[in-house]
Design a protein around this nucleic acid. Sequence first.
DNA 1: CTCAGGCGGAGACAAGATCTCCGCTTTAGA
DNA 2: TCTAAAGCGGAGATCTTGTCTCCGCCTGAG
Lengths: 207, 207
Amino acid sequence: MSVRKDSARNRARLVEAAREVFAERGFGATLDDIARHAGLGTGTAYRHFPNKQALAAEVLAGATEQIVVDARHALTVADPWLALVTFFEANAERQARDRGLYEALTGRGDDETQARIWPEIIVAVTDLFDRAHTAGVVRADATPQDIAAIFALLGPAFTMSRELSADLWRRYLALLLDGLRAVDRPPLPAAAPAAADLPTILKSGKT
Amino acid sequence: MSVRKDSARNRARLVEAAREVFAERGFGATLDDIARHAGLGTGTAYRHFPNKQALAAEVLAGATEQIVVDARHALTVADPWLALVTFFEANAERQARDRGLYEALTGRGDDETQARIWPEIIVAVTDLFDRAHTAGVVRADATPQDIAAIFALLGPAFTMSRELSADLWRRYLALLLDGLRAVDRPPLPAAAPAAADLPTILKSGKT
DNA sequence: CTCAGGCGGAGACAAGATCTCCGCTTTAGA
DNA sequence: TCTAAAGCGGAGATCTTGTCTCCGCCTGAG
């Protein structure tokens, strides 16, 4: 007897449901939540995956791969500054859309995923950064570690974006990049949040 | 019979212990933790304060007042840009040193404290911002709401500072302010974190 | 000296998450 | 069609973690 048809279908549904739920609510979501979102019982979820981490690992595998692809792609951009910005925007956009991804890249996933993906990102980013640095388009006292710090700082911006305006994070990414840049300064993208949005902005600090 | 001496002393000890524990670990700390830190039993803590919020309110009252004082003080600085920076630095320094304060100002305290303190801060900040804006030292497309957003973004920087180097947050505040500024650009303060610090930097996203 | 009131801390209680158990249903294959 | 192996559902057992109470013992005010 081969794999049951319903079993295979349910496994696929669980992975898809997990993708959606983790993206929307982060890893705080329970496996029970995911099962319900998939229209299945919790027992079914636990038959297919021993625990939440196993399911998260499956969902993240694809997403994190894609980031390395983004970094490699940015390396093909000729202008050093534009190459750096290209990477930031591609990566930030993924994180803004997927809360689980942000949590995985910064602290809250399993350490294993973080340990696997970051070294690859670092290699690509250091390369991008060095080129921009040599070309003199990045301030002289900045370092590649600042890149990671900028991603950490963007977390609250992603939270704001989710609640206010989908591309608000671009405004703060631009502000940070303008601070990082040696020269020039384009206008900020995305409209500023309204005064009435203040409570929401202030709630963005942590989860 | 008047207030017992030991009772008054224990109440003071609890407030002092709460100040220290909240500053160090944030409001996630339990009242039991605070009691133990004060060298007292949990029952004693609950006799003096009905719950954690009441104790937190007592501790925060002083701290939040101080922020308004900082804002008023910054308004006395003649140079518009320096006035804005003065406020940012004074306020950020308090938050960097007191995790509970950061949590209270951004989402996680009681909403009541946040509702009480922010309007006053907004008034002072809007004033500071308008002066800088009129003087042309702040980029034309920035708004006072961006000030709040910058504070939200600084959260992860405070976390990093706590774990790496006490004044690392100054580096990222400067980066953000340089992005906010219309002209000039001083070198970044504080040394860049080392490559080996990356895991710590990455954990700063949320609590 | 005495007793009202404070003290300590074990543990009752609550909330929330993880994961199991088992009676019922579905599917594959004869 | 029949059957048994496998999957399904979801109530609830279990664990964890934090809040707060209870009550026997102790201390200080008068």
